[in-house]
Simulated assay, not measured.
Amino acid sequence: MPSVLSGARRIVVKVGSSLVTNEGRGVDAAAIGNWSRQLAALAATGRELVMVSSGAIAEGMKRLGWAQRPKELHELQAAAAVGQMGLVQMYESRLSEHGMASAQVLLTHADLADRERYLNARSTLLTLLALKVIPVINENDTVVTDEIRFGDNDTLGALVANLVDADAYVILTDQRGLYSADPRKDPQARFIDEATAGDPALEAMAGGAGSSIGRGGMLTKILAAKRAAGSGTSTVIAWGREPDVLLRLASGEAIGTALLAGTPKLAARKQWMLDHLQLKGAVAVDDGAVAKLRDDGKSLLPIGVHEVQGDFSRGDVIAVRTLAGHEIARGLANYSAAEARLIARKPSHQIEALLGYANEPELIDRTNLVLI
């Protein structure tokens, strides 16, 4: 099996409620400590790690003395609010024991659907990773209704993997991986070691409800892997209590089910940019900026922009054109068209003085720019 993690530099790890809370009996300090130890060991090799953790509602249920997951929305939100306290405290203390700094990040699917909030979340997470901090991410179940009713952290983990351009996505669950059928009912069920993410046959194999503690079953994991593969990220589904599962995966050992992305990461990102048939705007840049983009792989700075065309918002895909009108690149704008007009031909250190604030020093960061 091609090693998904051995060459991965940036890895998103998702753990389910049943693992985090020991089947609902409360936050499992030993389990979180074990994963924290492995994350610290991987970080020591230069890898960047993001943890997406379920368990807030389950921990809140335990603290409130509830044996069954409530159905009323306000009770779910109350459980999430109570449980989030214990969950984040446990991650902070266990990661610090291994010399790792951590940060709590609460996200919703809506944060990643809105382009401006998407860029804000991306900038925050990439800054944390650059600072050697491990973000611990959960859905903001306390205030957002649709995530509790329909959301699952398998999908959130895939969205985060896309958000930070992860090389690999690991879903740790209470199952060994994917089988061709339910092994409890079909003795002929075959374990799937490797497959291509997005293969329709996988969805037929998966199915069934999740545990009484969590919401996600195997089908949500298959669909999450398909979503992650859209940006070129491969996924591994593995048993979370497998000894040193993360370290062994990173060493190249075949554990669980590997769902490989059919499109290379850079090609997927480029294709996503190129798929925009209608752009809301463009910028015309001078020859010096063209050379820096094409030859040096640099970001697009405001000082190289001579003209701003159209009416775009922060986070929109815009075209980058030469002064003669030839499109040379596309990228995500860090500033709106109105803001870009104010900072065009100006050095980056003047952005705050001109706008009253500064999102980033670049008009388009090189990680969000694709040459044509």
Rank of each mutant, 00 (worst) to 15 (best):
K62T: 06
G86F: 03
N368A: 12
G16F: 02
G210D: 14
I237W: 12
N359S: 14
L42Y: 08
V290F: 07
T196Y: 01
L129H: 09
K298M: 12
R25Q: 12
L354Y: 02
A58S: 13
L129Q: 07
I351M: 13
H326D: 12
L128N: 11
W272M: 12
I222Q: 09
E253F: 15
H98L: 01
D152W: 06
T145L: 04
A43R: 14
L107T: 14
T233A: 15
A267N: 09
E139V: 04
N34K: 09
R341T: 06
A78Q: 12
L202W: 10
D244F: 06
A340K: 01
L64G: 00
M90Y: 03
N34P: 03
A166F: 11
S93K: 05
A195M: 09
L332N: 03
L112A: 10
A201L: 11
K62M: 08
G304D: 02
E97V: 00
I11A: 06
K270A: 14
I148A: 14
Y179D: 04
A56V: 02
V160T: 07
T196E: 01
A78I: 15
V245D: 03
E59C: 01
S3P: 11
A337T: 00
V245N: 04
L323N: 03
L342T: 02
E147K: 10
Q309S: 11
S18K: 02
P302E: 09
A78C: 14
L49R: 10
D146T: 15
P347V: 07
H306N: 15
L266P: 00
V88D: 03
A161F: 10
L363K: 02
V290H: 02
D165V: 00
I328G: 08
K62Y: 13
I237L: 15
S96L: 12
V13F: 02
L128H: 13
D275H: 09
A289D: 05
